[in-house]
Design a protein around this nucleic acid. Structure first.
Lengths: 283, 283
DNA sequence: GTTCCGCATGAATCGATAG
DNA sequence: ACTATCGATTCATGCGGAA
């Protein structure tokens, strides 16, 4: 299997025009938040954010496959003692553009930024907005299952014969139903709340998010050989993870410093021998 | 100290008119969500929700003291494979009404509703939207501090194996690493993410939220003798907790069944002897 | 007094079936 | 085509009775 990584230096809106329609399986990105990272994109004012962002999502909508997903990591900051509303407005505007707002995941940052203020607590969560083109999209739920709670071990350890027969007793307790399903089960599906530390165990560079974050969504929404796009590449976490997971990736970055750094870390083409038990594939 | 509880039977918009301006320290409520509770509250359509709710928040804005806070517990449901947007629109509309959207807390429901669908995971969080009249408002942060030493001991002892695996599956981040930090400090400020389980009452009596939820916000935003209002009282959790915490309360409920039940549980006036070490006061 | 286990019950959501 | 109802699915928690 051949995995490619296309890294572009330039403004994301311009570069996106070069990418063909319906060619991307997952867009995962964390754009510069309003008024943040002033040095890179010049610091977009909260009031201007929607107008600045919409032309870009227009292109993302075009390049995304019908079965693909767009995951947007973002969190509004506080301006004059209030949460900014530009993300709410962005969601409404993107729906008018044709996106479906499928879900909002919460990233709970277990070790969030420290600080103390008289009128608020530390902000320990960010939004992960899921958008789609269609109601039907690819989702590989089994890839992100988590160990089941301990109660299962304790409760289902020694089931009596009557418990197994309880199928018949129509007391819809839910548990009587298909108890046999539970006997073999040691994993549960996760929820829409993700518990991840913010730790960027990167060597030196500060990434906007930990590798676990793109990894989780790449596992969930793509399979090996698919294509992942990050139009605001930054230090390239998404692309590096995609490479490790044998997904093709496209990265766009406006700052040559970041661009060169990521370029030096990822080789544009990697060859993988066919393996019947592909760690990240779905065979 | 004399604590009063005024319970009203009737439509919340009508009853609110009787309540004087600037008389309430905290509004904590969980209104019927759109399209939910059809059997009891008739079920407001998502498209009609903002228009239905705004006249009520207009009154809440009036009755709230300038230093007071409005906490709104709500979560949009899925309609045709998409999250409804009426809450986003409500926030924008309330700001035009004069509210400040100060913060959004997350209630992480550890035991959320089960189920499995091809295109989404279980919804494990709800919004707790904080609105204020002014940038300056009362906030008693010390009252909700988490006792670190004890918490760490208990937490570590009771920590299940799966918690360890689920949490720490990541880079050697630090489960053991931080223990020493916990032991040295007494208390820590919480964040804007609350971890509470929903109450699963085996009894007849069902509440929309656990008592811990209003308790936390009552501690945070009021002191003993202050006044708490819940315009959608339901089973009266907010008022019952307020009573226990020696806050005056006002409850409004449109269904006589709920109204009578709560009325039988709370006496309208309670007298408390002065105590120098008031468990819930701030002396 | 503990610990253990049976059990009911959730602000759910989708797809199929019925009017 | 469009809405209304119903069945199937799923997991964590606290209560209460038993050991």
């Amino acid at each position: 299997m051949e995995i490619k990584h296309d890294l572009y230096l330039g403004d994301c809106e311009e570069v996106l025009k070069k990418i063909p329609d319906n060619s991307v399986d997952l867009v995962f990105t964390s754009p510069p938040y309003a008024d943040q990272r002033k040095n890179t994109y010049g610091g977009i004012l909260p009031d201007d954010y929607v107008d600045w962002f919409l032309p870009k999502t227009e292109h993302m909508l075009r390049v995304l496959k019908p079965t693909g997903t767009f995951v947007l990591n973002i969190k509004e900051k506080v301006v004059k003692c209030e949460r900014s509303t530009y993300i709410l407005e962005l969601i409404l505007a993107m729906r008018k553009q044709g996106w479906l707002w499928t879900e909002e995941f919460i990233w709970h940052k277990k070790n969030c930024y420290p600080g103390k203020w008289p009128n608020r607590f530390r902000d320990a969560w960010e939004r992960l907005l899921q958008f789609n083109k269609n109601k039907k999209f690819n989702m590989y739920q089994e890839e992100v299952m988590v160990p089941m709670g301990d109660w299962a071990k304790i409760r289902l350890k020694n089931l009596s014969e009557t418990d197994k027969i309880r199928d018949e007793s129509k007391v819809g307790s839910g548990f009587g139903k298909n108890i046999s399903n539970w006997l073999t089960r040691d994993k549960a599906y996760p929820t829409n709340v993700l518990h991840l530390a913010t730790e960027c165990n990167n060597k030196n560079h500060s990434a906007a998010f930990p590798e676990d974050l793109p990894e989780w969504f790449i596992k969930l929404f793509t399979k090996a050989g698919d294509t992942v796009l990050d139009p605001f590449m930054g230090s390239g976490t998404t692309n590096i993870v995609a490479n490790r997971m044998r997904r093709n990736s496209i990265g766009i970055e406006i700052l040559s410093e970041y661009y060169e750094q990521v370029k030096s870390e990822i080789s544009p083409v990697e060859l993988y021998l066919f393996e019947s038990k592909d760690k990240y594939g779905h065979n």
